[in-house]
């Protein structure tokens, strides 16, 4: 009976063990990559489309408002991937809740603090499970988003996607 591994360390006398394990690892990596992209890419609109989404940045100093302008590009601060371009900026006073001695919550304006609402336009792929911008970034309303622009590095919240 033919030995599976011969005296030279070759499987069935043909393929050496190290090559065999390297091939297995390579096949697993390829399979994993295909699986990951397939699970995101059941593309329901046949290609990328332009979407608009909103990012809310809260409790920042008033003086930072001038650094958010139309036309500014936004990137994911962790990966550097492009996430869209600002096409509208709304600035308003920031309010938070303060409790009084009777346990009643009051909505109170925080001095020198503002809230910034950014409207962002981006190319996205819409799948059954997510909106993907910048390749693999999943946009989810309610999720924190870590963004950088030329002038700022900030954490916001995705408020709304689409109309």
């Amino acid at each position: 009976m033919t030995k599976i591994i011969d005296e030279n360390g070759c499987i069935f006398g043909k393929l050496n063990l190290i090559d065999f394990f390297a091939l297995i690892i390579l096949l697993l990596v390829i399979a994993g990559t295909i699986y990951k992209f397939n699970s995101h890419c059941t593309n329901i609109n046949g290609g990328a489309k332009i979407i608009e989404y909103q990012i809310k940045i809260q409790d920042v100093k008033k003086s930072s408002a001038k650094f958010y302008t139309n036309g500014l590009k936004i990137s994911d601060s962790k990966t550097g991937n492009y996430l869209g371009t600002i096409n509208k900026v709304d600035v308003s006073d920031y309010f938070d809740y303060v409790v009084d001695v009777n346990g009643v919550l009051h909505k109170a304006q925080k001095p020198d603090k503002i809230e910034i609402l950014l409207n962002v336009k981006a190319n996205a792929i819409e799948t059954e499970q997510a909106y993907l911008v910048g390749g693999t970034y999943e946009l989810k309303a309610g999720a924190d988003i870590y963004i950088t622009t030329k002038y700022a590095d900030v954490i916001g919240t995705v408020e709304k996607i689409g109309d």
Binding site: V98, V99, D100, H106, Q109, K110, P111, D112
Partner: peptide
């Protein structure tokens, strides 16, 4: 410093 005024539920500097 921004602090809470719990007497009337506001923020003050």
């Amino acid at each position: 410093k921004i602090v809470e005024n719990n007497t009337n539920g506001t923020y003050i500097l």
